[in-house]
Simulated assay, not measured.
Amino acid sequence: PPPSPLHPHHIDTARGRVHVSSRQRHTDATAFGNLLLHLPNFLCSLIVVALVSLVLGDVGLLVILVWLASGALVFHRPTESALARHLLRLRYPTPQERATLEPVWREVTARAGVEGRAYELWVEDSDSLNAVAAAGHIVGVTSFALNRLPNGELAAVMAHELGHHVGGHAWSGLLGHWYALPGRIAWRLLRAVTGILFHVSRAFSCLGVAFFGLCVGGIAFATISTLYGLPLLLLGMPYALAAVGRRSELRADRHAAALGFAPMLAAVLEKLHQQEQEQEQARLAAAGQGGGEPPKEKAASRLLSSHPDYHTRLHHLQEYLQPAR
């Protein structure tokens, strides 16, 4: 059942005139860092697209220009709707859901001085506590968050996602991912072809494997030395991008807390932490490993995580949770 209006985290969403700031968005250091870190991936993709364009002859240059201009689709509303529906598995709210969402969203955007009508609200049918900010205008929440959270906690979730938008995290992340896509597809094809060639070489015993290893190693060394070792940077990109992702989550938390939603956000983080623990226990039980202590997360997994852990996020909220003197 939905929480009672008497819940301590229920907020009054009745508001008259609101002040809308002249500055609606900006690109903060996290968004800029995300774009900068995607630059090697972009250059790899540009090389791949250029190689493909050579095969196409006269229209090759047009292909490159169209690909470079395609990043503008991040802010194209019909493309965003297709992204929300088919990639993020979101849907438009029902009239009843909209009646719940819109007053909360108006309160959040009023506190932030943001024009709320510039964004589209979406819902994901899910039993998990989650939300998403994507592209230029998408704000989505799960049906669990919509139906099970008091409206103050729902506001905290939406304020967090708004923080991703006003800081430029949502569009910069999607733009970086889009321009890295040709390079990633080429890398996967290369891995598949290399795997096939490796299995073929095994048919010729150890000598075939050694010859295959020498060929691949020689090509890799020539590529790295020719490009002054720049391809080696790609090995560290996932870790750097994950670190930037964690920083963007903390910035979005700070945005929600600065709007007055710190206690509500802390409660949401506690619920999210409990839900994650329950899911981990269920997974261990299904694997026949229930009853013991859950295994500690490996250091590499923590470094590749795009979200900070619960205790880190709560620690960064402490300055907003302490009563004013």
Rank of each mutant, 00 (worst) to 15 (best):
T109G: 08
R111Y: 03
R111D: 14
R111W: 04
R111I: 09
A112K: 03
A112I: 12
V114M: 12
G116S: 11
R117L: 15
R117K: 14
R117S: 13
R117H: 13
R117D: 15
A118Y: 15
A118L: 13
A118C: 12
E120N: 01
E120M: 10
E120R: 06
E120I: 13
L121R: 04
L121N: 12
L121F: 03
L121C: 03
V123F: 15
V123H: 09
E124I: 05
D125Y: 10
S126K: 07
S126L: 03
D127W: 10
D127Q: 10
S128A: 13
S128K: 11
L129N: 02
L129Y: 14
N130L: 02
A131G: 15
A133F: 07
A133C: 09
A133S: 09
A134L: 10
A134H: 03
A134V: 06
A134S: 11
G136T: 06
G136H: 07
H137Y: 05
H137S: 13
V139Q: 09
G140N: 04
G140C: 02
V141D: 11
V141Y: 12
V141Q: 08
V141K: 08
V141M: 12
T142R: 03
S143F: 12
F144L: 13
F144Y: 14
A145K: 15
A145I: 04
A145N: 14
A145W: 15
L146W: 15
L146R: 07
N147A: 08
N147D: 11
L149C: 06
P150Y: 10
N151W: 13
N151I: 01
N151V: 00
E153S: 02
E153I: 07
L154A: 10
L154D: 03
L154E: 04
L154Y: 07
A155T: 07
A155N: 03
A155C: 02
A155L: 05
A156Q: 06
A156I: 04
A156W: 02
A156E: 02
A156V: 03
V157R: 02
M158A: 00
M158D: 02
M158E: 06
A159V: 01
A159R: 05
H160C: 00
E161N: 02
E161R: 05
L162Y: 14
L162N: 06
G163Y: 12
G163L: 10
G163I: 06
G163A: 08
G163T: 12
H165P: 13
H165Q: 14
H165K: 13
H165F: 15
V166N: 15
V166R: 15
V166A: 12
G167V: 08
G167N: 15
G167A: 06
H169W: 13
H169N: 05
H169Q: 06
W171T: 05
W171M: 08
W171H: 13
S172M: 01
G173Q: 07
G173W: 03
L174D: 04
H177K: 07
H177G: 10
W178P: 08
W178K: 07
W178R: 09
Y179S: 01
Y179W: 14
Y179L: 15
Y179M: 14
Y179F: 15
A180M: 00
L181R: 11
L181W: 13
P182V: 00
G183H: 00
R184G: 09
I185A: 11
A186Y: 00
A186V: 01
A186S: 03
